[in-house]
């Protein structure tokens, strides 16, 4: 799934992505909106497993 698909289906995940902006060094939702999560994590050297867990938590809280 792309970041756009994730954030459009689970609006609560927007804050999670913003929380990773500093670590990525860019605004993820600006620069990687059409990337898959895996692609964005690889590109910006993010911990995919942790990011996925944070997103799942945020999505579960809002659903």
């Amino acid at each position: 799934m792309t970041l756009l698909e994730i954030v459009s289906q689970h609006r609560g995940t927007e804050d999670v992505f913003r929380g990773y902006d500093k670590q990525a060094g860019v605004c993820l939702l600006c620069e990687a909106l059409f990337d898959t999560l895996e692609e964005a994590a690889a590109k910006y050297r993010l911990d995919l497993k942790k990011l996925l867990a944070d997103l799942e938590t945020a999505a579960a809280v809002r659903s």
């Binding site: 970041l3 756009l4 954030v7 459009s8 605004c27 939702l29 600006c30 909106l33």
Partner: peptide, 11 residues
């Protein structure tokens, strides 16, 4: 509006 909101509203 900050990203991704312009795209979401367009969608």
């Amino acid at each position: 509006l900050a990203c991704p909101n312009p795209v979401l509203k367009t969608k």
